[in-house]
Design a protein around this nucleic acid. Structure first.
Length: 440
RNA sequence: GCCCCGGUAGUGUAGAGGCCUAUCAUCCAGGCCUGUCGAGCCUGGGACUCGGGUUCAAAUCCCGGCUGGGGCGCCA
């Protein structure tokens, strides 16, 4: 491809070996340091930063004087000559022959790299906030996580599908849904791509994944909830039981972490994080033993109860102490606490083949084996007091040949948050949607 | 949805009825400086969330609004 764009090099590509070469770099002006007859600029682009050095006499008077009129975060294009210099930060700098201003800023910036602003303020000014390489690094890591998981899935024979975000009937009950006007009808934003994945399995797709958003209309004021989040949602058929989905999920998580550890060195350094690759297999805890563990730790539970926040934390702590592991699967949740479509253990119907993946005491995903037998689905829907008519669009297909299947939906933002120990999940999405935040 | 806590220059803070003409850092403007490292020094600029109330006196106490955070529920 022919050379396109205004630049000849990215900042990172300016190396001492290019000494004396004419280059053009472009980016944001991060710092201006004036020392009378000597002025330093730091220009940063997506690749990194490079120092621009102007000595009176070494550069033209107009370039020299012009530097004083520039401001932080202006977008500039610098033409100049590369100079190898051991006194420069990376052993190299650029002596400018011309500086073009592409864009200026208002007087005072609403954020300041030197002062740690509150998250809410940062999010109000998110675009500027993301210019801090530390904040941008989060999304380079996130991109890698997704890349590794989807590469791995494709390697294992999964194909990517898109299931609808707009649905005609609120699917699961439980979580509240957003409703939207749909011509003269009411539609809902999906809470989970779950049911349509099952239908594709019923169609014979065998191994699929959907990477996309889900919405929850819950006014959750916590550092781990968003109103809009993304999931890597996997579904596969002809499984022996829910432990097959566990194996796939484990594989994905380990691959993702290995990829980040290998390819995100600079980002992890900026974020001051070290990735521990989890030992396999991950511990798997099952109900009702989970009750015993919690009781051992001083928490009483009612039979039929799932995990609450305290339970999650205690379990995380227990696994950390007992197995020295940050991950664990929790299996065989009480059917009482799960939706109608899960598969129960036939011999012990109070327990479901429902699996959560926990990471550092937080639920990362939900899944397990789904009920594929029509009669059972109908029976379970009745038990949950669902109006059969409302779910007929889904259940009717199970009369026509559906194999055993299972899957899970792994929360991308939660994985990112826990992996990087971010205090708030809102830091793990560029433009978070929370009960009080719909802009920018 | 329930409970708890907060809101002071652009940003982050100090402040606990009169010591507030409001602290400090950063920021912005101007000045000095030939090797800085998100420089340093000097001068200047910039704020009490809004509306009521109590009091001789309110950033400070009380009530309400707006707004943000946290805990729980629910969940990815």
């Amino acid at each position: 491809m022919d050379k396109i764009g205004l630049r000849t090099h990215y900042a990172k590509e300016i190396k001492p070996e290019l000494d004396s070469e004419e280059v053009v770099v472009g980016g944001w002006l991060r710092s201006i340091r004036e020392h009378g007859r000597l002025k330093f600029l730091v220009l940063e682009d997506k690749s990194g930063s490079i120092q621009i050095t102007a000595k009176r006499g070494d550069v033209s008077d107009s370039v020299f004087e012009n530097i004083s009129s520039l401001g932080k975060e202006w977008v500039i294009l610098v033409r100049g000559k590369v100079k190898k210099n051991s006194e420069a930060p990376k052993g190299v700098e650029i002596v400018p022959t011309g500086i073009d201003v592409l864009s200026e800023t208002a007087d005072t910036l609403p954020l300041d790299f030197k002062v740690k602003a509150e998250l809410d303020t940062r999010l109000d000014w998110r675009v500027l906030d993301l210019r801090d390489p530390k904040n941008a690094a989060i999304f380079k890591v996130q991109s890698k996580l997704i890349e590794e998981m989807t590469d791995r899935l494709r390697m294992m024979g999964f194909i990517q599908v898109f299931t609808p975000c707009l649905i005609g009937a609120a699917s699961e009950g439980g979580a509240d849904v957003f409703s939207v006007a749909y011509f003269d009808k009411r539609a809902y934003l999906r809470q989970d791509p779950q049911l349509h994945r099952e239908l594709l399995i019923a169609a014979g797709f065998d191994k699929i994944f959907d990477l996309g958003p889900s919405w929850r209309a819950e006014p959750s004021h916590t550092p781990r909830h968003l109103c809009e989040h993304r999931g890597c949602a996997v579904e596969l058929s002809f499984i022996r039981d829910e432990t097959d989905t566990i194996k796939i999920e484990e594989e994905l998580v380990v691959s993702a972490l290995q990829g980040v550890k290998k390819d995100c060195r600079e980002e992890l350094e900026l974020l001051e994080k070290d990735i521990k690759i989890p030992r396999r297999p991950f511990p798997e805890l099952r109900f009702p033993e989970v009750y015993d563990i919690l009781e051992e730790m001083g928490k009483k539970n009612r039979l039929g109860e799932g995990l609450d926040r305290e339970g999650e934390r205690l379990l995380g702590k227990w696994v950390e102490e007992k197995y020295k592991h940050e991950f664990c699967f929790v299996n065989r949740f009480p059917f009482e606490s799960k939706p109608f479509y899960v598969m129960r253990v036939d011999e012990e119907p109070q327990w479901a083949r429902s699996v959560d993946l926990m990471f550092k005491g937080l639920e990362l995903s939900s899944g397990g084996q789904r009920e594929h037998r029509y009669d059972k689905i109908i029976k379970q829907a009745k038990e949950k007091n669902l109006a059969l008519k409302n779910i007929e669009w889904f259940t009717k297909f199970f009369k026509y040949g559906v194999p055993p299947m299972g899957g899970f939906n792994l929360g991308i933002e939660r994985l990112t948050q826990k992996l990087l120990d971010l205090e708030n999940i809102r830091e793990a999405t560029p433009f978070p949607r929370a009960p009080e935040r719909l802009l920018p």
